[in-house]
Amino acid sequence: MTRGRFISLEGGEGAGKSTQLRALAALLRGRGLDVVETREPGGSDGAEAIRALLLTGEADRWSPRAEALLFAAARADHIEKTVRPAVERGAWVLSDRFLDSSRAYQGMGDLTDADILTLHRIGSAGFLPDRTFLLTLPEAEASARARSRDVNGADRIGGRDSGFHQRVADAFARFAKQEPDRVRTIDASGEADVVTARLVGALEDLLP
């Protein structure tokens, strides 16, 4: 049996990850592939339970260390129960966020990028996507999209200040520069179908 592929979509708030994941999944299914759509935190029963703990409550509900540990625990369950079994049976798994989000959001304060990678090595044996797409937008456009999306209020992480989100964007850009074989930067501006075409073009070398 041919092994499947694991693809993650990353980026800041309002970059269009969820929209593009659905579009890319539909296109890949049209090519006859078995596709699993998932997300982080979440994607398995245990990880979804942790998601509810992470994204609700006051901004200071969790310390940075506790938050990072919860994300790592959710990811370990997600990989064990959802991602790895699907890839091993030959499916393509598309995840809305993965490790790089933890690195960008949790690995630039009390904890370092090396700390987050160590947690990932312990919890998930260092499992990485075959390809990661980093969707980028100018800050003003991303903020406008996020406000339109979060009409009922942002979650406790998305609602952090603009300085925090700029540091997140800078971290994502650094990962793309450090790991160009895995991480591909995609311009997320313009019509949704145009962005989807950019994603497919950057995936052609992995397609059967």
Rank of each mutant, 00 (worst) to 15 (best):
P85V: 15
A86D: 08
G90H: 07
A91S: 10
W92A: 07
S95I: 03
S95A: 11
D96Y: 01
D96Q: 01
R97H: 04
R97Q: 04
L99Q: 00
S101E: 08
S101A: 14
S102G: 06
Y105E: 00
Y105H: 05
D110G: 14
T112W: 05
D113Y: 11
D115H: 14
I116Y: 10
T118F: 15
T118E: 13
R121E: 10
R121S: 13
R121L: 12
R121M: 10
S124E: 00
S124M: 01
S124K: 00
A125R: 11
A125S: 12
A125H: 11
G126E: 06
F127S: 03
L128F: 04
L128I: 01
F133W: 08
F133E: 08
L135S: 01
L135K: 02
L135T: 01
L137C: 05
L137E: 06
P138N: 09
P138K: 10
E139L: 13
S143M: 13
A144C: 09
R145K: 08
R147W: 11
R147S: 11
R149F: 05
V151T: 13
N152I: 03
D155E: 10
D155F: 03
D155T: 05
R156D: 09
I157E: 07
G158K: 10
G158S: 14
G158T: 12
D161L: 09
S162M: 11
G163E: 13
F164S: 12
Q166W: 05
Q166L: 13
A169H: 06
A169I: 13
D170I: 12
D170E: 15
A171P: 02
F172S: 01
R174H: 11
A176Y: 00
Q178D: 14
E179Q: 07
E179T: 03
E179H: 02
P180C: 03
P180N: 01
D181S: 15
R184Y: 06
R184A: 15
T185A: 10
I186L: 04
D187G: 03
A188R: 00
G190D: 06
E191S: 14
D193F: 08
D193C: 08
V194S: 11
V195H: 00
T196F: 05
A197N: 03
R198D: 00
L199R: 01
V200T: 03
